[in-house]
Write a protein that binds this DNA or RNA. Sequence first.
RNA 1: UCCCUUGUAGCUCAGUCGGUAGAGCAAAUGGCUGUUAACCAUUGGGUCGGCGGUUCAAGUCCGUCCGGGGGAGCCA
Length: 462
Amino acid sequence: MDSLKAILSQSPEGQTVTACGWVRTKRDGKNISFIALNDGSCLSNLQVVVDKENDSVSNETLARCGTGASLQVTGKLVASEGGGQNAEIHADTITVLGDTSETFPLQKKHHSVEFLREIAHLRARTNTFAAVARIRSAMSYAVHTFFQQNGFFYVHTPIITANDCEGAGQMFQVTTLDLDTIARKELKDGIDYTQDFFGKKASLTVSGQLSAETYACALSRVYTFGPTFRAENSNTTRHLAEFWMIEPEIAFCTLEGNMEIAEAFIKFILKYVLENCKEDMEFFDTRIQKGVIETLRQVVEKPFVRITYTEAIEHLAKAADSFEFKPVWGCDLQTEHEKYLTETVFNGPVIVTDYPKEIKAFYMKQNDDGKTVRAMDILVPRLGEIIGGSEREADYGKLVARMKELGLKEEDYSWYLDLRRFGTVPHSGFGLGFERLILYITGMANIRDVIPYPRTVKNAEF
RNA sequence: UCCCUUGUAGCUCAGUCGGUAGAGCAAAUGGCUGUUAACCAUUGGGUCGGCGGUUCAAGUCCGUCCGGGGGAGCCA
């Protein structure tokens, strides 16, 4: 059975084909009916033409071909007399594989994304969500292609972790203890985790970075690409409790090399999608965000702007009056600051490096100035931070000293510190939120609409 | 977690100064000689998010809870 994509790519010469799909719309005339059929293999529908004067398809069958029904159609593929499509199928037989009903919630009209979120199990049957799904798949393939072509090994870091030290956010606890029983007891001494499945407190991972570092310090170039979980109570269009993160980690690599790889990576994915998902991208360009294709093309062409945090603050200081939060050295960049830099000053992606150590994680390499670390964030218009990365502190003494300043216990990180005890090397890496990259590429507005079943605060439906 | 906003037909919304509900689309039915979210006509469709209060009278005013959306913080 050929997909509609395969059928529509054929030259229509009257050959007999069999097509399967779901009815999008049906338009009835006295002697003729048109059915728009879609199987999700591509954005385009196949127009099915039913000649009512010819008895091949009964009126009873035709009546069952309402929006949402699934059909198998056999007929001749011919050039279309109408203007909306090149080819169409003149049906000889139609088999209704599955009936629909008047309660089918998807109508042949526009629906809001908010409404479609409530029927997430059916929304993939709309143009927008099917296009997002196809692009997401193509991007996943491109992620692996980029790294595999550049000598990276794909490492599967654990989903469940008993490290209490990943430090990137609030964690979801994993337990087999009976919480109902625990909740009823007065627990003066706390919970006895030695009785739990893993014998200690365990959680879902918030980052594969620390594990990836251990493999980078063995295989040199590795990456992870998997689900990540954050139990933050954040309610925005850019956050999910369950999201997919891409985290490369590279040995013998300083921050400069890290930035080069990050920039090349983003450009590779954009270029791949522009070349391989043309029909879907044109849909996003006309229906979702006007001009998104041209924006992406320019991002691929131009080198990313690179500035230090200190330079960023200087830029922001010139427009200090326009901000709610005054830009002061030492403070983290606010959303309004990121927007100003990417949208007003540079009009494109900006890599900001060398942040104050106080606002960055303990494992980042300390600069000689004693104030900043070798961190880099890539900021993009509309979304803000899309990548966060750094060169890692490779010096055992400096790393331990920084941990002490922050009150972190050495024994909790002994395996991580072993990387610095035994054959330490300069190494770097970054994390990229996959869904944010999808938002950037498609122009979609809400991160909940670029993952099939979004998990957010108070929402784990489907 | 904080701020703003919103909840009325299957969907998108209107509903004025408090007086018991309206449109478009969708659906169903009929019509129509090739349509492109087809078109034309007819019909059906409502616990106005829940609970409580004020009032002769509440979709409308007040309180509270729940849901949706946007922004901020946190971050990817």
